[in-house]
Design a protein around this nucleic acid. Structure first.
Length: 791
DNA sequence: ACTAAACTATATTTC
DNA sequence: ATAGTTTAGT
């Protein structure tokens, strides 16, 4: 007989153990940061499976990201393998994995499988619905503005309008409700736009992210049979990050646990950071009221951070009113004090961080460091600084591959091929590459679609049949229509990668890029090759085009993050649930963090404070906070004066130490070096952008292997590049004139190492060359300043 | 009528 | 810095 799981439970502390074995009835686990929450959840799942003999498929665990879901699945499996190998072997079900999903992926799966009855209350709905992501939503909003004659200048900005509509939807207000309550011109317009938006989604048989949840809830309410089936199917429901659930997620939880009430929610009210997305902190604050027989367990022992970090973070969040209140404690030593660095400006701040990381990783090469910031734009300077130090970094969010035009274009072609009603995708690809269908023509089709209540594809077909357009436009439309028909056929018959290849050829997309012959176009081609190979892998795993598209829509930024990278840059929001030995939080300034938009209400400020708490508690051993006295907003404008973040003054001074002060001899060196780095950097300044991120793409698609309910295929993390060269960039000495570098030549750059020249522009002194450096991507360099050596 | 090149306004956080 | 928009050119 194998080691019993009960033995494993001995490794847990008393409340943790209690949380594992209290399986029946509603349970709220208030899990402070670093209190071993994931351990509890995984043990609990394993316990239910082995001790209560519940089939894994009867357990649903909902996590916040796909990555967290994958990890959880993996850890449960490892636990079972160790604690109950016999169970695993004897299990009749080879898919011995519980359902672990995000709310969104769970809903997609439910709707694709059992969604038919939804058609009764959502006319036109079929299980082959399309998912409209952020970009598609904006396309619809823009069409709405055109159709209704609105202008961003005298009405809401697109994004603001979208968020207002989303809020109305989540409050279950219909466009008619909004009309009825409209008192101002703006609210009337919003109602009209909302009506247009809903109409557009329905006629495209599309669901946006809100709909995935809302419509699942509506389906379960409406159709008793489906609801009963799911209540029978699932006997235990577990929800992680409960503090960030919104209304419809709450309702979904209740509907799914209606008959058994075995619902376990895990959360921490101090880490609720998504109210702007509709998360309702009341869900966790009112759990006791919602479930009068609920058991509440507090996990208050922190196993992650040092005493100093914990005390400092606790002191900050204590200023909040909206909390249940708990006191985290730790057995860890006090540890280092929290570092505070005051930079003269943003560039210096970034260089300080890079320098510090460089030193840290030189002495502790195994450590992982995170740099956290409030807004994505802050990443640029830090990235640049890290590159100057030759440190590799991983960046989560901001510009990731699925925002890349070429990937989005291909996805849009596929979506349109699968569902011709998908008008947002049609608008994206109708003239990409340019094929003589300009704005005027598109608008005419849009109008026709509106008049006849058709999708744009339907309107396009009508326009052709009825010869509604001038000869030139007509011909262009005919050839687009015929091409799309062939593509749709190909998508229906060819294997996924072949279908993508077919699209690339048939649309002339590949030719367009081949003709461009710029470094950018070459990178795009490479990205597309990578997409094809990712598609091939997906096809091998048995994914259909529809599966592939679902994943593309549902996989989030945080899912593509590589944990093995030594340095990770991300927003504070993305850092939720992660931990690092060393953490930097940059931009601790009034107006930036807390963000100026939070000044509107005390509640908003409290959320910023929770965000600060989340950030600080990511750190295990070392936490360094930085701010800049002057910061430049936008391109080249003059820097603006800033004030230190109010959160800094909430940290007890005795827990902090200022670093970078002149009296510390070690830091003198920093300033000298900094000056050196700046000089070197100025000489090495490159224009142009980094466009190479093949690794990101690969990684992103690697994630998709984790199917919802199946065994997890081995996932290789993307290769981490060889250890960074520890060199500081030397100030470039004046160089003897060199013979010009030609295309194809291999050159050696003092910082980026060896690379291949891919392009040369201009003559003589001013010649600019573009070089592809493996690991850094394409760099545009002024040859005479670049300090290149030829091999 | 469409495309490419100049111009200008701009950046919370994201499933 | 860059995405989105206007304008001039084919």
């Amino acid at each position: 007989m194998a080691v019993s799981l009960m033995d494993f439970l001995k490794g847990l502390n008393a409340p943790q153990r209690e949380a594992v074995v209290h399986t029946e009835g509603p349970l709220l686990i208030l899990a402070g940061a670093g209190s071993g929450k994931t351990r509890v959840i995984t043990h609990r799942i394993a316990y239910i499976i082995t001790e209560l003999r519940v089939p894994p498929s009867a357990i649903l665990a909902v996590t916040f990201t796909n990555k967290a879901a994958g990890e959880m699945r993996e850890r449960v499996h490892a636990l079972l393998a160790e604690a109950a190998p016999n169970w695993l072997e004897n299990s009749a079900n080879p898919n011995a994995a519980p359902n672990v999903a995000t709310f969104h992926s769970f809903c997609v799966r439910l709707l694709r499988r059992d969604g038919d009855p939804l058609a009764q209350i959502r006319p036109g709905f079929t299980r082959r619905f399309t998912i409209y992501d952020d970009d598609d939503q904006l396309t619809v909003i823009k069409s709405g503005y055109r159709a209704l004659g609105f202008d961003e200048k005298d009405f809401l900005q697109y994004r603001a309008a979208l968020s207002r509509i989303s809020h109305a939807k989540n409050r279950k207000q219909s466009p008619e409700d909004l009309f009825r309550d409209a008192t101002t011109l703006e609210s009337e317009r919003l109602a009209a736009l909302y009506q247009f938006y809903e109409g557009a989604l329905r006629s495209a048989n599309a669901l946006d992210f809100d709909d995935l949840l809302l419509e699942t809830v509506r389906l379960l309410r409406h159709d008793t049979a489906t609801r009963d089936a799911w209540n029978r199917r699932l006997s235990y429901v577990l929800i992680d990050e409960y503090q960030d659930t919104n209304r419809s997620q709450y309702e979904l939880m209740r509907l799914l646990s209606e008959s058994h009430q075995n619902v376990c929610v895990v959360g921490d009210e101090d880490q609720s950071i998504y109210s702007w997305r509709g998360a309702d902190i009341k869900n966790i604050l009112d759990f006791e009221r919602d479930f009068p027989n609920a058991k509440i367990i507090r996990l208050e022992q922190n196993y992650r951070s040092t005493q100093n970090i914990l005390s400092a973070a606790g002191a900050v969040v204590e200023n909040n009113k909206a909390r249940i209140g708990k006191k985290l404690w730790t057995e860890s030593a006090a540890g280092e004090r929290i570092g505070l660095y005051t930079a003269p400006d943003g560039e210096n701040e970034a260089l300080f961080i890079a320098h510090h990381i460089d030193r840290l990783l030189s002495s502790h090469p195994q450590d992982h460091v995170a740099v956290l910031y409030r807004t994505n734009f802050q990443s640029r300077q830090i990235e640049e600084a890290l590159r100057r130090y030759g440190r590799k970094y991983n960046i989560v969010g901001g510009f990731s591959f699925y925002q890349r035009a070429e990937i989005r274009d291909m996805i849009a072609y596929l979506k349109l091929a699968v569902s011709q009603a998908d008008s947002a995708s049609l608008q994206r690809v109708i003239n990409t590459p340019a094929r003589g269908i300009g704005r005027a023509t598109v608008e005419q089709i849009e109008t026709l679609a509106r008049e006849r209540n058709l999708s744009m594809w339907g309107a396009l077909e009508d326009a052709i049949e009825e010869q509604k357009l001038a000869a030139r436009a007509h011909a262009a439309l005919v050839s687009f229509r015929d091409m799309m028909r062939k593509i749709a056929e190909a998508a229906g018959t060819l294997p996924l990668p072949e279908a993508i290849r077919f699209i690339l050829e048939k649309t002339g997309y590949r030719d367009m890029l081949l003709q461009e012959k710029t470094p950018e176009s070459e990178t795009r081609l490479e990205n597309l090759d990578e997409l094809i190979s990712a598609a091939a892998e997906a096809a091998e795993r048995g994914e259909t085009i529809a599966d592939f598209l679902d994943h593309a829509a549902l996989v989030a930024e945080a899912d593509a993050y590589d944990q093995t990278a030594p340095v990770t840059l991300m927003t504070l929001h993305n850092a939720k649930g992660l931990e690092f030995p060393a953490v930097f939080i940059a931009g601790m300034e009034q107006g930036l963090f807390p963000h100026s938009r939070s000044a509107v209400s005390p509640e908003a400020l409290e959320e910023e404070r929770r965000l600060c708490y989340v950030g600080m508690t990511r750190a295990r051993k070392r936490l360094i906070l930085t701010w800049a006295k002057y910061r430049r907003r936008f391109g080249g404008r003059e820097p603006e004066r800033s004030m230190p973040s109010c959160f800094l003054s909430e940290i007890p001074p005795q827990l902090m130490v200022e670093i970078g002060k002149r009296e510390q001899p070690a830091e003198l060196e920093l300033f000298l070096e900094r000056h050196e780095v700046q000089q070197a950097a100025k000489r090495n300044m490159f224009t142009g952008k980094t466009v190479n991120s093949l690794e990101n793409i690969h990684q992103f698609f690697g994630e998709r292997g984790k199917s919802f309910n199946g065994p997890k295929p081995p996932v290789e993390s993307a290769p981490v590049r060889p250890a960074a060269q520890p060199s500081m960039p030397r100030p470039a000495a004046p160089r003897p004139p060199q013979r010009a570098a030609r295309t194809g030549m291999t050159v050696d750059h003092p910082k980026y190492g060896r690379g291949t020249v891919v392009r040369r522009e201009g003559e003589g002194e001013d010649a600019k060359i573009t070089v592809n450096f493996p690991g850094y991507g394409l760099k545009k360099l002024v040859e005479k300043y670049a300090g290149l050596k030829r091999d």
